[in-house]
Design a protein around this nucleic acid. Structure first.
Lengths: 253, 253
DNA sequence: CGATCAATTGAGTGTGTTCAATGTCAGTGG
DNA sequence: CCACTGACATTGAACACACTCAATTGATCG
């Protein structure tokens, strides 16, 4: 409830830049439309939500939206761009714990903690919508559908982690990579007509490897294998899908 | 499975058995006291919570509290005993996705889904307290502290998984086991005076292995290694801790 | 007591790791 | 414009840790 996010150490809206609507949120142009928390709320209910939110950014690649040990205050909806969260592992190296794209909520991982447990770092030019958690929580009490929506999102996050990471421990490097590509297809695919398409990768291969629980070298080898099999074409900042079906069908292979 | 959870498909209180208080819940004797959702609620607020809950069980070892694809209706607080949840992996084998002890909430994983995604199976004689989720949700709207508590618990679950399972992928079998033993210490330790103690294991070694992402053989070898190092004494249904400090300190080793 | 399942032990294999070298690319400055 | 730099990506060779398969021992229960 304290200050605007200002003056402290993080989450500063890069001054001159911060986008169009500063005072009250106009959701009509938001890139997260159709995937945001507010979906399904009536017009009157949205009023409340709009009042507590505001747009931050744009963040440049590498900039932090928040840092480990910053005081936990807000969730962030990604309006455009992409974000990763990472932590120091027990060995000291950085581990990537998640990627977030347009419409995703960043910060759920820290609900109930006093501080954020991750660094949240923009991977490309990124706009986010800040939702102060205290306000959001109060609002939830008055808007049961919002409360419900938030709980559903939390449940989905738990399940998603379980299905990918937890069960991923029993999958080969190739399967892990395939299910990652599958996720990318669903989130970012450009054109999937005729079994083909491509994705611009906002994150480094090293980040992907870390997220999948592999070494960069292992990921690289696996990528070249898929390329030799004619399933993808592997480039530095881009992956072309030559056989989308093969990727989507991998689940039970 | 012809359990006495019978007829419908799940979540029915085994007739003759269900313990003392059927009509309205008396929390004063509950084994989960001090760790339950209701902690921190005032007396008037607890009224509401008591009205919607009831005790189920006792479940015998191997009995289901609910099954995969049962309709999602309720969360369950464990009053006494222990529970595992498991799913079929993509290969068909069963994977253990979690263990739950006195005071833990089972079912969070399915919030927002229509059906449970796991089998929940009692590991020993177990009593649970059923919280119909619809009622709980409504109640949350009127009792902000309850809403908050539930969100906190969801956040904690996300963090716990991240800290153990996700980061565990980068740990050796020995470290995974040690951090599991650490968890057991915190949840179930009998006597930790003078750097010693022991835990009765409610689950099989195979279940532990599955939960840790290892093969039973690998776990067994790791257990014998720790025994040779003088850190534990490994028995079939029991582990003695000969050097608790070594276990608690492993985090950064 | 024998039957059944869980747990342990051994020997050999394999997938991903480690370490080291090479290659690619964007940015900088002469 | 080209050489230099530094981060990222790829490739190769040797290794290690956990896996696989198989046999043995140990517990539990009818």
């Amino acid at each position: 409830m304290t200050s605007e996010i200002d003056e402290e150490n993080q989450v500063l809206s890069p001054q001159g830049e911060s986008s169009e609507d500063q005072s009250e949120q106009d959701c009509s142009e938001c890139g997260a439309k159709g995937r945001c928390l507010r979906e399904g709320l009536g017009e009157e209910q949205m009023q409340g939500l709009r009042k507590i939110t505001r747009t931050l950014g744009p963040f440049k690649p590498g900039e932090n939206i928040f840092r480990v040990e910053d005081k936990f205050k807000s969730l962030f909806v990604i309006q455009s761009g992409a974000v990763k969260i990472e932590t120091a592992s027990f060995e000291g190296t950085k581990l990537v714990d998640g990627f977030f794209f347009r419409g995703d909520l960043v910060g759920l991982e820290s609900i109930g903690a006093h501080q954020y447990g991750h660094d949240a770092i923009a991977l490309e030019r990124t706009l986010v919508c800040e939702l102060p958690f205290d306000h959001l929580e109060s609002l939830c009490s008055f808007v049961p559908r919002l409360q419900r929506k938030l709980m559903i999102i939390l449940g989905q996050k738990i399940r998603y982690t379980n299905d990918t990471i937890v069960h991923g421990r029993y999958m080969s490097a190739e399967k892990r990579l395939l299910s990652f590509l599958q996720m990318l297809c669903e989130k970012k695919i450009i054109e999937k007509s005729d079994n083909t398409g491509s994705v611009q990768l906002p994150m480094s291969k090293g980040d992907i490897a870390s997220y999948l629980g592999l070494r960069p070298e292992s990921l690289s080898r696996t990528l070249t294998k898929l390329q030799n099999d004619g399933i993808i074409r592997n480039q530095t900042k881009k992956i072309e899908f030559l056989d989308i079906k093969a990727i989507l069908q991998q689940v039970c292979g």
